[in-house]
Write a protein that binds this DNA or RNA. Structure first.
Length: 962
RNA sequence: GCGGGGGUGUCCGAGUGGUCAAAGGAGGCAGGCUUAGGACCUGCUGGCGUAGGCCUGCGCGGGUUCGAACCCCGCCCCCCGCACCA
């Protein structure tokens, strides 16, 4: 039998659409469930990563729907931002890489390509393709609520305007300044993707220590201001160009480059004169802390491009400084050129200020010697610096010379010390790049401080507190992600929420700015609840005044007056308010872990800013990042798989299940075509298997094995249900498909004549358990077993305690163990068995065993006390010797039995092993192709030539094979 | 560097103190079906062992415990994020 997935999938997709089963409207009589997937950005097609996360949402939605929840799963498209515009621009310019990527990876047809010069067309194209893909893969979406972002969707734009005006009113949006990596040529921030060199490098704040020099300052840049206590001299590059400049009114000596940089950092810089470093070499400056007079020495290693180009020297703790001084000591002729008396350098004594384990007085000197560093141009200098720095920062304790900071670690005092120094006027700061960054246009980048930026005040401690609380109130899947959220909430600084370019919604109070993409996507789930009405009643953006949104989302104002003013029907207005209140809060939002520090945290922050706690998100799922064939997905590396291609090649159910079986929690799933192929075969086999077993004929009598199957099924139902509740979608899918399948296979192997009623019951449950994962084939199977309606809306099975039969399960375990043991013996002895004899335990062993088990529930059992209590039983007393031998052999087993197993065995009580084995006899005979005889160990008539019977233990019959 | 996650058998991957030689899947092997099969079905799948046992084993090295894949300490390695960007 062979069939096409596509046929089945199209059939059921059509029927679902016709029956509108995924359209959800408020129904006060039913509990609701509102799940969301972060709308995907439409600068390209949906890929398998989207598919993975959305599958998890869909499984949850489908499960909740089957549990009777009125379930809403809406979908929308994110158009906000720069990349779509950038991509269109690249097409317009005829960028070959871009066009090749569109053609080969995105699969854009030739006749469409020319239209991609228009960013809006591009977004529309991918949206249309995405919509079809989402439908084909079978996500249970209510399409009446679909929308996209930006001013091209005026009602959404109005929503964002309202959101930002409200945030601003509440003080969460403020104006400020911000340092960015900046290309002076392009006159714009240089993001990672716009760089030729310096990926990942960002602005760092250097502390400037202002050493006095005549009537000016030499602001030396450092990350280690605490080392000022060990300063011995200054280094300037004699060949570099320095300037004397007024910086905010103070006279500074800095490199020429530094002057330019400072002028871009909101400093007022006025250059007074230019000169070479040489000019100052040999002169003296004053250390503002100790007031000592120290020399300025030549240092060719000093880079005028790095910060101020002024470096102070701490030879005890900075390897580079020590080497530079040593170089000068060894080459007095260099000093002579600058007219410096070599004694000046000879007399420099390193000053130790940090005590650090593993080093003596002068860590820098020690490491330079240890690493055998030649001179200041040796590349090993950086490594040495980093080693000393790390060690001193983490474990270094400041010495008495540091005054009030003495006795504490560097790590502890750093921030405080900088603050103190700044207050005392001896320190300042500037931004710079720790490594060279070069723009695509070949220009070297600097740090610019942008002013007039609009920020979301995520740094606000009170707001952070609310966000923490929201996380504490929510369910977080997996639980381990909770700490991650808390960490990231603390770490977040103010977020520049507006940009100059790209698609989006203009800031209402400053329309030359556009609300930035991560900032217009934080509470839009609320928009899903009303966009239905907006469409249905053709409500225009102008009608959606701030008062209207205040009413819908906050319940403020008088709806009658509003209706009059906006000419929105009063019932529609009320309907929107009710619909919002019905669906909110969001019951589950799922995304990949990369979005925790930004989108998901923003989502939390803004909900706490705008809504009361009862409307904060109830649960957040976080999952891993999908890779393809073991490699990170990347368009530029050609390692990219469109979701639509996977569905096209493998079908919706196969794609879904392959993704879902890939991983759960924060583990990263890996898509492999091989896996998809084997899932394809599996699902075809499933179809066949179900159609075969529902046609089986057999006994209607209910035997132990029948009770076993029904009983273990209850456990499977519980496992799958609990797993989905906790978004453990992989576990759920694995148990639902493979474990239940194996249960049925064991049943078929065991039962000579399977009971059709039992099988139908099991299959009925099985299909329902599988439906959230592979809905299409399940609809087909549901139909095949004669059920009406959709499995998608059938009742979710729940475990029936009355069908749990611990005794039947324990009996079956015992038989499996016995078969394993038997097989083991046969393998070892290499005999071909003709006859297998089993001897089951006598009643007194059971009595003793159960009593031991009971005793072990309240702690470890020891020989003495257990024997004492057993001997109170007259029957056991008569067999004292045998009992004590048996107890001795069983004690350890009883004591190490896991609690769960102990409970189950106590609940099962004494097993009628004779009956159980007799019922399984023909099965065992079939398995071993031998005659099977079963006796009680104390049966005087038993056949027992090797006297094995005595070895029988409860759950472990003795075996004799010949 | 900081923060988060992780290293398990041939591979993927579950497992967080005894049920663990370790679920499930893939691959491999054997048998069945078949004209044949890379299709399907069934079973087996660390090593050793002439009686249900023993040995080795869960990144590396120590430790705690009657008992450790699981707890503690130290080390090595991999993945993700680190801000104006989706």
């Amino acid at each position: 039998m062979s069939f096409e997935w596509r046929e089945i999938e199209e059939k059921w997709r059509r029927r679902w659409e016709e029956a509108r089963i995924f359209e959800a409207d408020p129904d006060p009589k039913r509990k609701k469930c509102f799940v969301t997937f972060p709308y995907p950005y439409m600068n390209g097609p949906l890929h398998l990563g989207h598919g993975f996360t959305a599958c998890r949402v869909d499984v949850y939605a489908r499960y909740k729907r089957m549990r009777g929840f009125n379930t809403l799963f809406p979908w929308a498209w994110h158009w906000t931002g720069e990349p779509i515009v950038g991509a269109a621009l690249r097409v317009k310019r005829g960028d070959k890489d871009m066009i090749r990527m569109l053609r080969e990876i995105d699969g854009v047809p030739e006749e469409e390509l020319s239209k991609f010069t228009d960013p809006v067309y591009m977004a529309e194209y991918y949206t249309a393709e995405g919509r079809e893909t989402v439908k084909r893969i079978g996500f249970s979406v209510d399409w009446r609520r679909e929308f996209h972002t930006t001013s091209l969707e005026p009602t959404y734009s109005r929503f964002i305007e309202w959101q930002y005006e409200t945030l601003r009113k509440k003080g969460y949006v403020v104006k400020g300044t911000h340092p960015v990596v900046w290309c002076p040529h392009c006159k714009s921030p240089t993001g990672d993707h716009d760089r030729l060199e310096g990926e990942g490098v960002s602005a760092e704040e250097y502390t400037l220590l202002k050493f006095q020099f005549e009537d000016t300052y030499l602001p030396a840049a450092t990350f280690r201001p605490e080392t000022i206590y060990g300063v011995t001299n200054m280094f300037l590059n004699p060949d570099a160009t320095y300037v004397e400049a007024l910086v905010d009114g103070e006279k500074w000596i800095i490199s020429k480059e530094a002057a330019y940089k400072l002028s871009e950092q909101l400093r007022k810089v006025e250059i007074l004169r230019e000169f070479k470093g040489t000019e100052l070499i040999g002169k003296y400056f004053i250390d503002p802390v100790s007031k000592r007079r120290l020399p300025i020495l030549p240092g060719w290693f000093v880079d005028p491009n790095s910060a101020t180009g002024v470096v102070y020297s701490v030879p005890a703790h900075a390897p580079a400084d020590w080497i530079a001084i040593r170089d000068l000591m060894e080459k007095p002729e260099l000093l002579k050129k600058f007219g410096i008396d070599p004694r000046v350098v000879k007399e420099i004594k390193p000053i130790s200020l940090i005590k650090v384990e593993g080093f003596g007085e002068y860590p820098a000197i020690e490491i330079v010697e240890k690493m055998k560093i030649k001179d200041q141009f040796d590349p090993k200098v950086d490594e040495a610096t980093s080693i000393v720095y790390k060690k001193e920062f983490h474990t270094g304790v400041l010495k008495p010379i540091t005054g009030k900071y003495a006795g504490r670690t560097v790590r502890e005092v750093k921030a405080e010390l900088i603050e103190d120094f700044k207050r005392d006027g001896i320190a300042d700061s500037m931004y710079d790049l720790p490594e060279k960054v070069v723009c695509r246009c070949m220009t070297r980048c600097i740090v610019k401080v942008l002013s007039d930026q609009w920020f979301l005040k995520y740094s606000d401690p009170e707001w952070k507190e609310l966000a923490h609380e929201a996380i504490d109130r929510a369910k977080i899947f997996p639980e381990s992600a909770r700490a991650y959220f808390h960490e990231k909430i603390d770490w977040l600084r103010d977020w520049a929420c507006a940009r100059r370019t790209g698609l989006g919604t203009p800031l209402p109070w400053s329309p030359d700015w556009i609300v930035e993409t991560l900032s217009d996507s934080t509470i839009y789930m609320a928009f899903y609840t009303i966009v239905k009405h907006i469409r249905q009643y053709n409500i225009r953006a102008e009608q959606l005044t701030n008062e209207v949104f205040d009413y819908i989302f906050f319940g403020l104002g008088d709806p009658e007056r509003l209706a009059e003013k906006t000419r929105i029907d009063i019932d529609v207005l009320r309907g929107m308010r009710e619909e919002f209140l019905y669906w909110y809060p969001v019951d589950l939002r799922v995304s990949a872990k990369e979005l925790v520090p930004n989108h998901l945290s923003f989502f939390i922050f803004q909900h706490t800013a705008l809504f009361p706690p009862e409307l904060w998100p109830r649960a957040i799922g976080v999952n891993g990042m999908l890779s393809i064939e073991g490699k990170k997905m990347s368009k530029s590396k050609g390692n990219f798989l469109k979701l639509s291609d996977a569905v096209e090649r493998f079908g919706a159910d196969v794609t879904r299940l392959t993704l879902l079986l890939g991983a759960e929690d924060m583990n990263d799933p890996d898509w492999r075509d091989e896996n998809a192929k084997s899932i394809d075969l599996r699902l075809r086999a499933l179809y066949r298997f179900v159609s075969e077993i529902i046609g089986l004929e057999g006994e209607s009598e209910v035997r132990n094995i029948d009770r076993w199957l029904i009983s273990v099924l209850q456990g499977r139902i519980r496992t799958v249900t609990d797993a989905i509740e906790n978004l453990k979608t992989r576990t759920a899918a694995e148990v639902a498909l493979f474990e239940i399948w194996n249960d049925i296979r064991w049943y078929l192997r065991r039962a000579e004549n399977p009971n059709p009623k039992i099988l139908l019951e099991v299959v009925d449950v099985w299909i329902r358990l599988l439906a959230p994962f592979i809905p299409y084939i399940c609809e087909e199977l549901w139909h095949m077993i004669g059920r009406d309606g959709f499995v998608s809306t059938a009742d979710w099975p729940l475990p029936d305690e009355s069908k749990v039969d611990v005794k039947a399960e324990e009996a079956e375990d015992m038989i499996r163990e016995l078969i394993n043991d038997t097989a083991n013996i046969i393998e070892v002895t290499k005999i071909t068995p003709k006859r297998i004899c089993y001897y089951v335990s006598s009643d007194w062993k059971w009595k003793a065993y159960l009593e031991m088990l009971q005793a072990s529930t309240s702690g470890k059992v020891d020989m003495g006390s257990v024997m004492k209590s057993l001997m109170r039983d007259p029957e056991l007393r008569r067999l004292a010797k045998k009992v004590s031998a048996y107890v001795g052999k069983s004690l350890q087993e009883v004591n190490t039995l896991p609690d769960d197993k102990r409970r189950r065995r106590l609940e099962a009580g004494e097993m009628d092993e004779l009956k159980i084995l007799n019922e399984a006899r023909s099965f065992i005979e079939r398995e071993f192709k031998a005659e099977v005889l079963i006796f009680s160990e104390d049966d005087p008539e038993r056949y027992d030539p090797k006297n094995r019977a005595g070895a029988a233990k409860p759950y472990r019959p003795a075996i004799y094979i010949e």
